[in-house]
């Protein structure tokens, strides 16, 4: 029996003691920080403001726009389409490319006012088993209605990019059950454009539709 075990995760935010006050230092930091820090700064808003749509952009873009007042560069950084990336290293490389190009074209770089420097942080993830399991799509639907948003977050976002499994856990499971079309439909969603509750409802509806067919 192919059973789906719903897990959940809780994050601890760590401080790296590393700051940046201009683009050059931000670039230097992005090159040096651990992947857990890239993940933190690109997913923090999604997690903390998961009720908002559209959500605020990643931390780098937000700081560049709101603190350095570099609207154009901020927009480019916020437009990086995270769903297209399969590894955090690739995502880091993209940010490095954008910032390097900006520095090549712009001699002058504004400095953050004192007290508004960029502080690099990271997160540690603690994964727990929940009591919820499913062996059929209808059990899956039932359970997905009950688990916390942290569980949904883990199986969709963390599984694909942080754990670098290539795709989300739900699609992998439905694929194993032979429900390829449903697996593909869930994989095709851009989860970054939903609120977490919106995403939960969307997935439940997809499963419901396939289950009733």
């Amino acid at each position: 029996m192919n059973e789906f075990y719903f897990k959940t995760k809780l994050d601890q935010t760590t401080l790296l003691g590393l700051t940046a006050k201009n683009i050059r230092e931000l670039l230097k930091g992005i090159k040096a920080i651990p992947e857990a820090s890239i993940y933190y700064h690109t997913h923090k808003y999604l997690h903390q403001h998961h009720f908002l749509s559209p959500e605020p952009p990643n931390d780098f873009a937000y700081w560049i726009t709101e603190v350095l007042n570099e609207a154009r560069l901020g927009e480019i950084m916020s437009s990086v389409d995270i769903v297209q990336f399969h590894t955090l290293q690739d995502l880091r490389t993209r940010f490095v490319e954008i910032l390097s190009e900006h520095l090549r074209e712009n001699d002058k770089s504004p400095t953050a006012p004192q007290g508004q420097e960029f502080h690099f942080m990271a997160s540690r993830m603690f994964v727990l088993q929940t009591p919820y399991t499913a062996t059929t799509p209808s059990e899956f639907r039932e359970a997905l209605q009950r688990v916390s948003v942290n569980s949904l977050y883990y199986h969709i976002f963390d599984a694909k990019l942080r754990l670098e499994k290539g795709e989300n856990d739900f699609s992998r499971w439905f694929r194993d059950l032979g429900k390829t079309q449903l697996a593909d439909e869930i994989a095709r969603l851009d989860p970054y454009t939903y609120t977490l509750e919106g995403l939960r409802n969307r997935i439940i509806k997809l499963v419901e539709r396939h289950d009733s067919n």
């Binding site: 601890q12 857990a36 540690r124 993830m125 603690f126």
Partner: peptide, 26 residues
């Protein structure tokens, strides 16, 4: 979601647990 006492308790529990574990993903 972020600033109620329940989140604070969660952070403290994680903090205590993290003393026994050192990996980024546990």
């Amino acid at each position: 979601n972020n600033f109620l006492i329940t989140r604070h308790i969660k952070d403290y529990l994680l903090l205590f647990i993290s003393l026994f574990r050192r990996n980024d993903i546990e």
